[in-house]
Each structure stands twice: as structure tokens, then as C-alpha cells.
Design a protein around this nucleic acid. Sequence first.
DNA 1: TAGTGGTCTAGACCACGAA
DNA 2: TCGTGGTCTAGACCACTAT
Lengths: 247, 247
Amino acid sequence: MAITGKADPGRVIGFLPLYRQVKERLVRRIADGEWQAGRAIPSEMQIAAELGVSQGTVRKALDEMTAERLLIRRQGVGTFVASHDEDRILFQFFKLGRDDGRRVFPDSSVLSVGEQPSDATEAARLGIRRGTRVVRIHRLRSLGGAIAVSERIVVPSARFAGLAACDPVPNNLYGLYAERYGVTVARASESLKAVACPPDDAAHLGLAPGSPVLAIDRLALDLDGQKVEWRVSLCRTDQFHYTSDLK
Amino acid sequence: MAITGKADPGRVIGFLPLYRQVKERLVRRIADGEWQAGRAIPSEMQIAAELGVSQGTVRKALDEMTAERLLIRRQGVGTFVASHDEDRILFQFFKLGRDDGRRVFPDSSVLSVGEQPSDATEAARLGIRRGTRVVRIHRLRSLGGAIAVSERIVVPSARFAGLAACDPVPNNLYGLYAERYGVTVARASESLKAVACPPDDAAHLGLAPGSPVLAIDRLALDLDGQKVEWRVSLCRTDQFHYTSDLK
DNA sequence: TAGTGGTCTAGACCACGAA
DNA sequence: TCGTGGTCTAGACCACTAT
């Protein structure tokens, strides 16, 4: 047993409850690719025996990881590492929907892909040095056949070798990041503004230049909180809307 | 003891785990005003003894209620009913912030308050019959001195008797709903669009008519999921932005 | 039927805050 | 010092799924 069992009274600084120590170890197994997306992890009893803690302690760690959508539990079957399948993307990472309420997965058509040195803005957003190479993707996304979004994506080349040469670039990028590069997008932070649509995007979206569009600026983070991807999406909101639940 | 102890095997339909039954009872005590906002509730042991269940079962109910922000736990002190103080509003219900990152509580200046029969749109959004009387409030909100939002609020008069005569209308409306009317806003659903600003709102916001503004359409629900309030906020986003965390 | 996660209990000890 | 919530354990039984 490598984890200190009961909290030793001498340690005051850096104390972590046992179940948090267990959780950190298990998260690391996902981050390191030891446990892969979509696969079952060992049973609670097996993990408890391996780490020398009680089942209840393992359960509390798994409960938190489930709440953070890192795991999916299926009664009678087992516990699985969450994958970026379309359902998860749709409910966790794609907030734009049709006004008629139908939720559909967006289609994509790629306009350009390339690898270049990062400019100052990209470097600042991604926390890298200016000039560090990045992959840039520009694509249109449609909902139910109607073009809705003009989207520009930037990722550091270092973590995504060969992405620029990928043909075709898949629709579900987060799934690709996980499967091909072992990078798990765990959460993202979005900043929204209403802006006047620039002429070239307006042409792609079928709008008059200057029309109001919703600009979504998103920074995606991995399991360690490292910045993985920056994307800016310009969205038509005449037939679509962005949903945000406050709770 | 009124709660059925162990799950009786005969019941298949409508089965609820014991801790969920406990939770429903405790939520009801808040909804009924038996436990008031900001006040301490009995200790876990007291609740467990009263309901004839173990402390662990009560704890699981309280854990869920804490996760839903209905309760606030303070180690060594007790468990308290969450109140709509400025901190909670700021983090849970107010997503607009300054671009410089400073988070401040918005000021309000009321333009008009009145009670009238509801129109078709209001009735549909609030789930009431058209013509049922509602209170309408129109106010401007500013962040750090700069006017940022033109906001129109509609609530059914039935649940908020005398609200239209309230002078002044307080800045923190959800706090008023709770204290004066016993109505707890538990969660809200927002729908966002970028729109061209109408002339009268543009004048209030200091914008040219037709400028892009963020339109936030919010429906607020109480503890029972009943529709409490509908509000539409038109927001300048030249110096401000709406934050949405996906996780 | 076997194995998984889900629920419930009981009791121990710890950390924290107030008096 | 006392009472609170926080952590950890151990064991029992239930519900669900696959075989």
C-alpha cells in the first residue's frame, strides 16, 4: 500500500483526505492513458484491495469523478471512462440549438487547415510563447442542414503532431484528441459577446455584413488544467440560440 | 416514523431510495417556509433521530441538497438554508462581467413598474392564462458605473401581491421574493441570442440603434419547478461579456 | 447464477468553530 | 470543552445486467 492509511496527525500542511488521494491517483491513470476512454475500470472492490482502503473510500472518489463526468457508472455492469461521443458533446460541449427545440449534432465542412507560427493573441490565449507553431482550422458548422457557425480553432502543434495533415479533419475533434493524441478535454470556459459580423464570415453564413452574431470564445482544458485548444465561433442566432442553465 | 424504513420488496412502481424520501421531506420544509433562508437547520443526528433513519442516510440527502445549492454546510458550526445574498447571485445567477475581469454586483435604476393583464407571450412563457395579471418591471443595470443592461421582468401578480407598489424596488429581487413572498428561486434557464438593439433600449444603453446586443431570455423556477419569473435582458457586450463554464 | 454498482446501517475518530 | 460536520471503515442487503 503506497497511500498513507489514516491521516497521520503530524502532517498539517498539504493534508488531503484519503478519498481525494485515491481520486488523484485514478484521474492520473486516465490522464496517462492507462485507463482508456470507453473502457471499463476495475470494480470498486478490486481498486479498494489494490490500494489498501475500504470500498466506501473508493466509492467516494468514484462518485466525485462521476459528478465531473470523467466516469460513467452502469449498475450491474461496471464503471467506464467517459468518452467524447456525440451524446456527451451534445449535452456538455455544444450549447447551440435550434429555436424549434430539436437538438441535433452539428455537421462540419472544413474551409482550411494549416500549421503556422502563433501570433501574439493565440500565444496569450494558449499560454505558449509567440511564434510557437500552431495548427489552425477554419470550418463551417450546420444544424439540420442550415449553416449556423463559422468556427476558427487553434491548437499547439506540439501536442497534436500531424493534425494539420489529417484528411479529412473529423467532425468530432475532441474524440480525435482523445483517441489519437491521448488528450482528454475535461472542461472548457466560454466568453460570449454580441458582435457585428465581419464581411468574410457574413458571406459564409449567408448574412449581410454587420449583422449581429453571437461570438463564442472558448478555451478548452485537459485533466491537468492545461490549455489544450482555443476556438472562436461566430453563430447565427436568427434561427438558433445558446442555452445556459443556471443551477 | 412516517418514512418506510427498508425498501419493501412488494413495491416496484414509484420506489424511491430512503435518502431521496428524506431529501424530498427536507426540501418541502424549505419550500413551505418551515426552514427559512439563512437559518440553521437541525444537526444531522437530530434529523436522523426524528425521521428514524441513520445519520448516513440523512447525510446523503443533505449532500445532494448542498450540491444543488439549497444548503450551505459549515464545519464545526452547522448546516444552513442558502439565501440569495449578493455572493450567491453573483456566482450563480449573474453571468455578465467586465472584460477586465473584475466581478462586481450590478446596480439598478428602475424606469417603470406596473401591474397589467398579461399578453399572449408573457402568458405562454409563465404558463398562465392570457389576461392573468402580471407585474412588469423595466430597469437599467450598471457594472462599475457604466450602464450595461436594459432589463424587463415579468412575474404573476398572484404570487407577488403588492410588488408593483413596492418603492423602491430592491436591487436584489430574488432576495425579496424569498423574504417577503416565501418564493425560492432554485434555478433558471437562459436562452441567448445576438440581436440588433431596438431604438428605445439603444437610447438607454447609449448605443446607436441597431447595434449588436446580447439578448438573454431567462425563465426562473422555484423549488417545485414552477415558473416564477420571466426576464429579458439586453446587454452591451463592448466592454462586458457573458461567462459560461462547461463541465 | 454470478458479479456489479446502489443503498443503508453502525460506529469510530478527526478537524473545526464557538463558548 | 463541547457539538458540529468530515472522513473512514465494515458489513449487510438490494437492484440490475450478462450469461
